[in-house]
Design a binder for these strands. Structure first.
Lengths: 370, 370
DNA sequence: TTCGTTAGTAAAGGTTACTAACAATCAAAT
DNA sequence: ATTTGATTGTTAGTAACCTTTACTAACGAA
């Protein structure tokens, strides 16, 4: 009920305007001070002053004189110092594997590292994260802006993993631990939530988007009005154990019957697909899974009037029949309004979606960009 | 994709801080300037200055000297001038009836008016709204802060009713029309969305709440992180025509089979309840309806990790069996996590919920309060 | 009475963004 | 070739805002 109503001191106003300048520079490269003034709405004088600050902080660089022939004094083009800082991003959601990357400010992957963590859980798993992180930090060849981590399980605002059964974690203050060990700013969030951020930022998703991650389990991340939804108890997106339909289904590990995971989790889905006698039967398996997904998602699409639903997971199983079936099911079960329902598609970001999302978390948290 | 990144000029900073002061005063009556300084985080000097402005605008009044015996100079208590302004709020969602009220800034209803609109549609219905509004304006005995309207149908950000079949409206710019005719600030939103705002503000709802309105149709309003969700096409909350379950159901006016409305809309529900042979059969009807509601809502509860689900509609049908059945269904179909799922309850605001929500819209839009 | 505390105000100072004015630079018209 | 007009970026001065510092008023407690 308490609203974060922060007072605005002149200093805060300044930093807010600084962020606006960074925002503009981030998304459209090659702007002059005058361009920024027009885009942001501040005067050229003020923009010059802000840009001087940003250049002093090495966050912005001058690219040189604009080439095109226009009347008037030629503009000095600016850009964010995209190569001047590095971001370290980790993805802890793989089976028996931690993956991590170093990116520049554009999310371009510069280095990759991974660490086998078969059988590693609890504090040993935390140590493994720290080790992978240390390796990546060592490989970064620019000052590190921050560290982003996409973790399975339920993660609260403070980056504490409240629950991640596969890693044997409960109330693990991962963000604080890593920040303390590295001395760097660290941000930890749920992997599917991070993926949703990546899709919005790098995948061209709309401002009201649901991203569904299908792997060992089924999770999702939700961006509403351009902002990530965290939920009343930090558990937004946990749709894997919502029961689908009214006609039974398989028994789930959680004890219920007909959970979304029993229909869609990759191990089960793969097993059913492989058990199919022929191609037609295989298609039927996938279509049924897509239909279940559509049934489960339809109320969410309706209630939130989502513009886009994006799937992330193995293409060989998800793309095609399953995706089409899900899209068709959503269309047929929600208001087929003038817009023809939400776009339903696969992510274009592939396996890097979580690390990219973790990078976005750093960009947002440290620079205010996006 | 475009973020509303408004630059912060000193003037804007000032008005933001003004709003913070109003916020504090609004929710905890009987604060001194020094109290405000502590609460808001600005210095006593600045607060005094802001308060002087607000007093000059007649928005804040001095109540007198604080009574309690403490060392030091006694405090001068302040309050929002709650009786100094009136809000006019309309509810267009009744069958054949427009209702409206005049409230003070606390949402206390001072006057009521209503207008029979049986058979009135299209521009005549707009005229009827204007007439009801004029009557209420005439009865207000304080300057009118603004006008809020809760309308059925799909309403966009600009207060244009994109579609309201029962009133024969399509693309009706109700907000602009009323603003032009009255010269007052007018805000129009969907009735269920307004109701959700009322529940959050006056009903003590959490920051992640779903409000479901069951009447002629079924609609909902969604508050996420304390903010109303509008949706990609302004149609958030339209859950009435989402198909429930996988086992058929009645045919709906929309052409689909098994829509939530076919299970829950009051006319149908009442008919089924009255057709019940005895009390047990009646209970079964209500329990089945509640179960359908729960089935439909469960994915939304899971995806958003909602803290609270609130029902608004006729108590005789909804409260009791139906409500309990819905709550139990949600519990059994979602992650029964440590929190035991969301609270499921009836609204405490009764029939005024929509007008109160419309009043909240004015408070928010004009004063920035809430 | 004296001391310490709290509320509110006054004056001065620093930060911020704005307006006005100007130099630099170039295209296009004359 | 020169003038005109447009555009960029900077300098100088101003207004608005919040803060720090210092003050008075008012009160309880020792």
């Amino acid at each position: 009920m308490v609203r974060a109503g922060a007072r605005v001191t002149p200093e805060r106003a300044r930093s807010h305007n600084r962020v606006l300048v960074l925002q503009e520079l981030y998304r459209s490269e090659g702007l002059s001070r005058a361009d920024l003034a027009r885009a942001v709405g501040l005067t050229r004088v003020t923009i010059s002053d802000l840009v001087a600050d940003l250049i002093a902080d090495d966050l912005v660089i001058e690219l040189g004189i604009r080439a095109d022939a226009r009347p008037g004094k030629p503009a000095t083009l600016l850009d964010i110092n995209r190569a001047g800082f590095a971001i370290v991003a980790l993805d802890l959601s793989y089976l028996n594997l931690f993956r991590g990357v170093v990116t520049d400010l554009d999310g371009t992957v510069l280095h990759r590292e991974q660490l086998d963590v078969t059988g590693v859980t609890g504090t040993a798993a935390v140590d493994a994260v720290a080790e992978l992180l240390a390796r990546l930090v060592a490989r970064a060849d620019a000052p590190i802006l921050g560290v982003g981590v996409g973790s399975p399980g339920i993660v609260d605002d403070a980056g504490t993993v409240l629950s991640a059964p596969n890693l044997g974690w409960a109330d693990v203050p991962l963000q604080d631990t890593l920040a303390e060990r590295t001395g760097l700013p660290v941000l930890v969030a749920n992997d599917a939530n991070a993926a949703a951020l990546a899709e919005r930022t790098f995948g061209g998703a709309e401002d009201d988007t649901l991203l569904i991650r299908i792997g060992r389990g089924v999770g999702s991340g939700l961006v509403i009005g351009g902002r990530l939804v965290r939920g009343a108890h930090s558990a937004a997106g946990e749709i894997g154990h919502v029961v689908v339909g009214t006609d039974g289904g398989e028994v789930c590990a959680c004890g219920k019957t007909g959970c979304l995971e029993t229909w869609l989790a990759i191990p089960r889905l793969q097993a059913r697909a492989e058990a199919a006698s022929d191609a037609t039967a295989r298609e039927a398996v996938l279509a049924a899974a897509g239909e279940r997904l559509g049934i489960s998602i339809s109320p969410v699409v309706g209630a939130l009037n989502l513009g886009e639903v994006v799937l992330s997971g193995p293409l060989d199983l998800l793309d095609g029949t399953l995706l089409d079936s899900a899209a068709e099911t959503i269309r047929s079960r929600t208001m087929a309004d003038s817009h023809g329902g939400p776009a339903v598609r696969m992510t274009t970001l592939g396996r890097d979606i979580v690390v990219l999302g973790a990078a976005v978390m750093v960009l947002t948290g440290q620079l205010g960009v996006f």
